[in-house]
C-alpha cells in the first residue's frame, strides 16, 4: 500500500451559521487504496466530513487536499476533483425520469464527452459488476431499494473514480436488502479503490476496513484498526457508543 495521502485534512474547521461548530480541527490523512469506516452518533459531523471531500459542503478554515488538488472556491478545481470522486447517497438519488442505463451514461456523455456507444458499454460493464445488468432498460422506481442502491453504486463507478464515498448507503434499506449492497461494497474493496464509508454496519467494518474512525461532536475522537477499536476502545465516548450499537 502506497504511503502518499490521496486525501489530506489539515486543521479543517466548518461552521453552520455563526455558532454551530460542526467540524473541529480535523486532521486526517487517507492513503491511496485505504478503506476507512467513519462511525459515530448522529450529529457528530461524519456526513459533513465526507461531503467536504467532493465540495458538497464548504469548509471555512483549514486546508483540504484531494488527489493533489486543494479544494477552494475555484470551480475548475472542484470539477477536476469530482471527476475522480464518486459518491453514493443514503437516499440513492437516482434520476427517476431516466432509465437505469441512461442514469449511468449521463455523466460520461455530458461531462467526459464520451460517445454514446462507448458510454453504454462501460455502463453495462459496471451493471454486470454489481450484478444487475438485466434491469438496464427499467426505470429506477420500478426497482427495489437494494437494486436501486446497487445501480447508484454502478453509476458512481462509471466515472472510474479513484475515491468512493458512501454516506450511510444501507440506512434507508429494508433489512433483507442490506446484504446484497454490502456484498457489492466488499467486492469493490477487494479491487483496490480508496473507500470512505459512513455506516452503522459494524460487520462490514470488521470485514473490510483498514481503519475505523470514531467521531463525536465534530471531532475525531478515536481512530484505530477495527480489531483494536471494537475489542479495546480507548475512550469513554467510544465505549459508550459501542455499547449502544452492539448491545441490542
Amino acid at each position: 500500500m502506497s504511503q502518499e495521502s490521496i486525501i489530506k485534512f489539515d486543521k479543517v474547521n466548518k461552521w453552520y451559521g455563526n455558532d454551530f461548530h460542526v467540524l473541529r480541527d480535523i486532521d486526517l490523512d487517507v492513503a491511496k487504496g485505504e478503506r476507512i469506516v467513519v462511525c459515530g452518533p448522529s450529529g457528530s459531523g461524519k456526513s459533513t466530513l465526507i461531503r467536504c471531500i467532493n465540495r458538497l459542503e464548504e469548509h471555512q478554515q483549514g486546508h483540504l487536499t484531494v488527489d493533489g488538488i486543494e479544494l477552494t472556491d475555484d470551480v475548475k478545481a472542484i470539477d477536476k476533483v469530482r471527476k475522480n470522486v464518486g459518491m453514493v447517497f443514503q437516499q440513492f438519488n437516482l434520476f427517476p425520469h431516466l432509465t437505469v442505463l441512461e442514469n449511468l451514461t449521463l455523466s460520461p456523455m455530458w461531462v467526459s464527452n464520451m460517445p454514446k456507444k462507448e458510454a453504454e458499454e462501460r455502463a453495462m460493464q459496471q451493471l454486470e459488476r454489481v450484478r444487475i445488468a438485466e434491469q438496464a432498460a427499467k426505470y429506477p422506481l420500478q426497482l427495489s431499494g437494494g437494486q436501486q442502491q446497487r445501480v447508484a453504486i454502478a453509476r458512481a463507478l462509471c466515472l472510474t473514480p479513484k475515491i468512493m464515498l458512501f454516506d450511510e448507503p444501507t440506512s434507508a434499506l429494508d433489512p433483507e436488502m442490506i446484504k446484497e449492497v454490502l456484498d457489492v461494497m466488499v467486492e469493490m474493496a477487494d479491487q483496490g479503490i480508496t473507500m470512505i464509508c459512513v455506516t452503522h454496519e459494524m460487520g462490514f467494518a470488521k470485514a473490510v476496513a483498514d481503519r475505523v474512525i470514531f467521531m463525536d461532536q465534530g471531532q475525531i475522537v478515536e481512530e484505530n484498526t477495527p480489531e483494536a477499536f471494537f475489542n479495546n476502545p480507548q475512550n469513554e465516548r467510544s465505549k459508550d457508543f459501542l455499547s449502544k450499537i452492539l448491545g441490542h
Binding site: 467532493n54 470539477d79 469530482r82 447517497f89 438519488n93 455523466s107 467526459s112 453509476r155 466515472l159
Partner: peptide, 12 residues
C-alpha cells in the same frame, strides 16, 4: 438530493 447527485457526478 437530485441536484446533489448531479453535482457529485460533475454536471455544471
Amino acid at each position: 438530493g437530485q441536484v446533489e447527485a448531479a453535482s457529485a457526478l460533475g454536471l455544471n
